[in-house]
Design a protein around this nucleic acid. Sequence first.
DNA 1: GACTCAATAATGTATATACTTAAATGCAGC
DNA 2: GCTGCATTTAAGTATATACATTATTGAGTC
Lengths: 240, 240
Amino acid sequence: MTRPISDALHARIRRDIESRIMSGQWRPGHRIPYEHEWMEAYGCSRMTVNKALRSLVQSGLLESRKRAGTFVAAPRFHRAALEIPDIRAEVEGQGLTYRLDLLSRDRRKATEADKALLRVSSGDLLAIECRHFADDLPYALEHRLINLAAVPEAAEVDFSTQPPGSWLLAHVPWTEAEHRITAINADPATAQSLHVPENAACVALERWTWIGAGRDDERITYARQLYPGDRYALTAHFHA
Amino acid sequence: MTRPISDALHARIRRDIESRIMSGQWRPGHRIPYEHEWMEAYGCSRMTVNKALRSLVQSGLLESRKRAGTFVAAPRFHRAALEIPDIRAEVEGQGLTYRLDLLSRDRRKATEADKALLRVSSGDLLAIECRHFADDLPYALEHRLINLAAVPEAAEVDFSTQPPGSWLLAHVPWTEAEHRITAINADPATAQSLHVPENAACVALERWTWIGAGRDDERITYARQLYPGDRYALTAHFHA
DNA sequence: GACTCAATAATGTATATACTTAAATGCAGC
DNA sequence: GCTGCATTTAAGTATATACATTATTGAGTC
């Protein structure tokens, strides 16, 4: 997942700055040398220095202010890049056999509850309940709503073999998404479905997906996935 | 959290491309126009076009191949940027009163268990157990190990008022970090400590933090935070 | 047809230059 | 001391240009 290291000059400058920040030599708030100082130091043009700095600004390590200079940004949070693979890919990536179990599929007009979850005001949708298996052990329980106004093709798709997440990821790419991760106790039905004891702690991952950033944004899907807490962990890595 | 919109030409080109991808008009694998076509379309230089494209490549929306062109990247995961604020900031950000309760503080040579968690081979460390309160309701239970070889100053800090996470974030900036999120059932002691029923589902957030990307990396700290699942949710947003 | 190899065309990198923009600085006047 | 204003300086944007790199294309050969 690491970027291929490049021997380009701007990449070297970038790495040099990065390592001085990472090592703690330059702390947040520290004003790093001016662009013209870097260009002297490396005997290159300002554009080259600028390219390095801009890329560090984009990744949040630096912050520039006109006239004042460029500063090491203050980390206000622990940032991490969470990459949630689609479940089939995740299971198969672990060398296990994936199997999907479609529990229910219902095409209906949005109920009040659906509207609240999908964040739409009306329309038809597809409601799916399914279980994901890894080597015959339940891996996740999924409840999903798909907005048919946004993705009419979904009405024709056979979700008894293809997980809805995989299909959507391939067919409705590059959407905006919001995730909510919490923990819940398995109710009796969930416990039975996931083969865990009643009240077992589960990771609940909710995801809202939509297209477009403006007012005319279009809700695509809502998904809620429950994972047995003792078999599953989300991992995230911060690298800058 | 949204970037300030810029009216620079390269930013406009960027937005135009972005919106065509986000709207689904250009799907993954699609070859977008060549740089020289963009420069004709906008009547600008190639460097300006290049700036827009590079920034979209950096954020993972595009992918360039020499000679072949620039393509819409295939989203293989649901990416999300997880920003985990330090607990005090998080609580106070919600308008609640923060209070820290230091349960134990122990300076010791690393035990076998410590070594495994902190991922060091030996050395002195500081082990801290504390509870974070929001308006007199327990918010999180924290178990933390700090490697004194990496952060000797920590030995002198008074962690009865200042949460270790806040202090570390301010004093050991820009580190690498790995997060692991899972769900567990509260054991009797934890339940009592967090004022939740026994076996209540809790979000368990583990974080390993170190400095430097090479072999000579230095382990800073290990933290495990338990949050009552019914009072707490991690949220993450993907925006591209 | 399959293989080799050179021409081609697109991105990648870098330079030198010029003008714009915004904020820190310092000076003048009250 | 404080305020307002002009100055200055560093980053921001953009251009035109050149050469490097590399994967594709296609022509020529076996």
